[in-house]
């Protein structure tokens, strides 16, 4: 049905905060409770869900930033969980990330050239002039003039910083880009610029996306497949067309019906539907 899987996640379990010995223990919490999905080459795959549902944790586990307690994550057939702490550069090169908060994801004390250049040097061992040229190319790719090379993050606007973060991720020529709420910190007018940029890159570079977001309208613009998470589990997954048109799980229906539409016509009907769904949910708390 879909293409060759690039990333296969099977029964993934992630637990935080265990094993604190020497005074001060505290039970761990299980943030992801057995989640499975595939992402194929060049595909836009979205994880949606409310805050705390575990969607970011899945992204962090794939990046080796969160401890995998069970299950497997295979990229190109290789199990990442088996790497432990030492994740090989080849994997780092293939899977990159863009985070939500462009303020915190760039080091305030390093110029844009340093931030991107260090990644280029690490992965391609380029000479200084070649690095500089490559940074210029990457900036051009995300629509920033070479002028920004010698700026500090504090001198950039939120949208510009997010462009820099994307350029840094592209520096390794990845095949999978994990985008963790990449536009939630941005104004609407800037948000659409970044969404268009991500779409262009997908088309031009054949990138696959794992797109993590709580905003269904944003997800709609980038995702081919959508998976809905709640309390650490997937409740529904499907092609985005189907899922938005005919959500089957009650939680997904609630989610879809809760998104505000910029059109006051029909708002009374939408509201009546939400009320009915809430009644149904209260009546059968199984969901």
């Amino acid at each position: 049905m879909r293409g060759e899987p690039l990333l296969e996640v099977r029964d993934l379990v992630v637990a935080y905060g265990r094993g604190r010995a020497l005074f001060g223990g505290g039970a761990g919490i299980v943030a992801v409770k057995g989640v499975s999905f595939d992402i194929t080459v060049g595909e836009g795959f979205a994880l949606v869900g409310e805050s705390g549902s575990g969607k970011s944790t899945i992204g962090r586990a794939i990046l080796g930033l969160a401890p995998v307690a069970g299950g497997s994550i295979r990229f190109d057939g290789q199990d990442i969980a088996a790497f432990g702490r030492r994740i090989p550069l080849s994997f780092r090169r293939n899977v990159q990330v863009v985070f939500q908060d462009p303020r915190s994801s760039l080091n305030p004390r390093r110029t844009i050239r340093d931030a991107i250049g260090q990644v280029v040097e690490r992965h391609f061992a380029t000479s200084a002039p070649a690095t500089e040229a490559r940074v210029g190319d990457l900036l051009a790719k995300v629509g920033l003039a070479a002028y920004f090379m010698h700026r500090y993050p504090g001198e950039l606007s939120g949208g510009q910083r997010q462009r820099v973060a994307i350029a840094r991720a592209l520096a390794t020529e990845p095949r999978l880009l994990i985008c963790d709420e990449p536009v939630s910190a941005l104004d609407v007018s800037t948000q659409s610029q970044i969404l268009n940029l991500l779409a262009d890159l997908q088309r031009d570079l054949g990138l696959a996306y794992l797109f993590i977001s709580h905003d269904l309208a944003v997800v709609r613009q980038v995702a081919d497949v959508v998976a809905v998470m709640r309390h650490g589990k997937l409740v529904e997954m499907g092609a985005s067309e189907d899922l938005y048109r005919n959500p089957t799980h009650p939680y997904t229906r609630m989610l879809v019906s809760s998104v505000p539409k910029p059109d006051p016509r029909g708002r009374e009907e939408r509201r009546a539907m939400r009320v009915a769904l809430r009644h149904a949910a209260n009546a059968s708390p199984a969901a």
Partner: peptide, 10 residues
């Protein structure tokens, strides 16, 4: 997050 980003960059 810049520390995470550096880790992810290898």
């Amino acid at each position: 997050l810049y520390v995470d980003a550096a880790r992810v960059a290898g």
